[in-house]
């Protein structure tokens, strides 16, 4: 049976992507917390398998994932990496642990997972399309975002290089969302000032995960069969806006 492998599915964007994509795919959902993954599964259609795993365990992930795939006798046709660690942190607060954890989750894990899913012994030639959930900070900059921003630039670098190395069998693209209202950020948006600031900065208003899910589905599908190595910015116009909004 053909499956889509989705990381970061226990909450936020990942959970909503799981629900949306479960309409057209059988899913393998990953996250750290088994209970929360079960909650996600309960919201999904079709077949859903759960793989609880901490993606920062980079020394073991290849072996553990390979064993798990063999044990379940499944073929994986698509991979969406939605797991992401984001901590706003001024440079003076940065230490090697947060750098390691962020890059392990945001960059090392998707590379190692893609390696396993393109191994002929583990997954044959089944993998066809990969989508990384990046961020609109990938090509930009913001104060207190050096760790996260660098990791997302790294993720998009990975995306472009894999797109070439794995062509023509596997297409690799990324979606670059802007700030969205999710489980994780809804407290932030309950502050009127923050909400107003966001509304001013987003020409199309504040987005939700439902706004990026169709872009992910498009990049996974055959409708995008001549597209690889691309960043698809879905951020309500946030990063192309050069209007001085406080003067409007």
């Amino acid at each position: 049976m053909d499956y889509l492998f989705l990381t970061g599915a226990s909450s936020g964007v990942g959970r909503e992507l799981a629900v949306y994509l479960s309409g057209s795919y059988n899913l393998i959902i990953n996250g750290r917390n088994e209970e929360r993954l079960s909650e996600t599964k309960a919201l999904c259609k079709n077949n859903v398998l759960i793989w609880p795993y901490d993606l920062t365990n980079t020394t073991r992930i290849e072996d553990d994932l390979s064993q798990w795939i063999k044990g379940n006798d499944i073929s994986i046709v698509s991979f969406v990496h939605c797991a992401g660690l984001m901590k706003m942190m001024p440079l003076r607060s940065v230490d090697s642990k947060i750098l390691y954890d962020t890059f392990a989750t945001n960059v090392f894990a998707p590379e190692l997972i893609t390696k396993v899913l393109t191994s002929r012994k583990i997954n044959g030639k089944n993998l066809k399309s990969v989508v990384f959930i990046s961020s609109n900070i990938s090509n930009r900059g913001a104060a207190a975002f050096s760790v996260y921003g660098a990791s997302k630039s790294g993720l998009d670098g990975l995306m472009r290089n894999l797109a070439i190395e794995l062509a023509p069998g596997v297409r690799v693209n990324s979606v670059l969302p802007g700030g969205m209202i999710t489980e994780m950020t809804k407290d932030l948006f309950s502050d009127e000032n923050v909400k107003k600031q966001f509304e001013m900065n987003y020409p199309l208003g504040i987005g939700t995960p439902a706004d990026i899910a169709p872009a992910v589905e498009f990049l996974l599908s055959d409708s995008s069969k001549w597209i690889t190595g691309q960043q698809f910015v879905v951020d309500g116009g946030r990063t192309i806006d050069i209007t001085e909004r406080n003067r409007l």
Binding site: M89, P90, R92, S93, A143, A144
Partner: peptide, 11 residues
């Protein structure tokens, strides 16, 4: 300043 306040949150 604002960066110090963010550092304070982290600390």
């Amino acid at each position: 300043d604002s960066m110090t306040k963010l550092s304070l949150i982290v600390m």
